[in-house]
């Protein structure tokens, strides 16, 4: 049985061959079983890879090695790298009921929060935790990312600037803004909401003027 299931599944098989194969699959139990086996295999590889036990102490290991190298006072190729990695892995804290904002997209308690200062690291973390296609967002040079968190059906980047804190919430694309006033591309409530990509976004914090400016910047990175 030498069928190119990969092409069939990813849609690159020519349409006529694909239709013919689909017709065969509908009537041939053995062939269908073979295709199901292929799909089960691909899915099992994904699950096995994603559930691979990464050393829980990987971050600790980086920090320990950095400390050890620093004590020896010997420069090492990876030392600077370890410091950067360590800054990305400042710490993971699991909370069950830390602050959430029922007025925004976060209608359930925070499940987990991570202190992180790199937008791309935060995006990677949110993606791995929620499955959202979260982009890395730099709100402004003055608003520094301090943490990322998520709950059921939402995630959030937290920023701090001299003028206060900002919270950029994200959720699935759905009608979250019933009753909000529409102002151009934004929905205005206590914060500013918009749709970007396949997601809904909502920015809280700061003054109206500052929030509008930062929302515009953020929105341009979520399209």
């Amino acid at each position: 049985m030498n069928i190119d299931w990969q092409s069939y599944q990813d849609g690159t098989m020519p349409a006529d061959q694909s239709e013919e194969l689909a017709a065969r699959l509908a009537s041939d139990d053995d062939l269908r079983e073979e295709y199901q086996g292929y799909r089960a295999f691909v899915e099992a590889v994904r699950e096995a890879g994603m559930s691979e036990k990464l050393d829980d102490s990987a971050a600790d290991l980086l920090l320990q090695r950095a400390a050890r190298q620093a004590k020896r006072g010997r420069p090492r190729r990876g030392l600077q790298a370890l410091a950067i990695a360590a800054s990305l892995l400042v710490g993971f804290f699991a909370y069950r009921a830390v602050s959430y904002d029922p007025m925004a997209l976060a209608t359930t308690p925070t499940r987990e929060i991570v202190t992180i200062s790199q937008p791309e690291g935060a995006a990677d973390w949110v993606r791995s935790k929620t499955g959202y296609d979260a982009p890395a967002i730099s709100l402004s040079p003055d608003a520094v990312l301090v943490s990322a968190r998520y709950g059921d059906n939402w995630a959030c980047y937290d920023y701090e600037s001299d003028s206060g804190k900002f919270y950029l919430y994200m959720s699935d694309r759905a009608d979250h803004f019933a009753g909000f006033e529409r102002q151009g591309d934004f929905f205005e409530g206590k914060g500013l909401g918009w749709y970007g990509g396949d997601m809904t976004w909502y920015l809280r914090g700061g003054s109206d003027t500052e929030r509008r400016l930062l929302a515009s910047r953020a929105a341009s990175q979520t399209r």
Binding site: E52, A58, R77, G78, L88, L89, D124, S128
Partner: peptide, 29 residues
């Protein structure tokens, strides 16, 4: 980070080598 560790584990067979590779990748990035 876990994504980078998983890929590093495909390239290296040693835990410490993987950690080094992740660190160096972040530095170069």
């Amino acid at each position: 980070m876990s994504f980078l560790y998983r890929v590093a584990n495909r390239l290296k067979n040693d835990r410490e080598d993987s950690a080094d590779l992740v660190g160096e990748t972040l530095m170069l990035a």
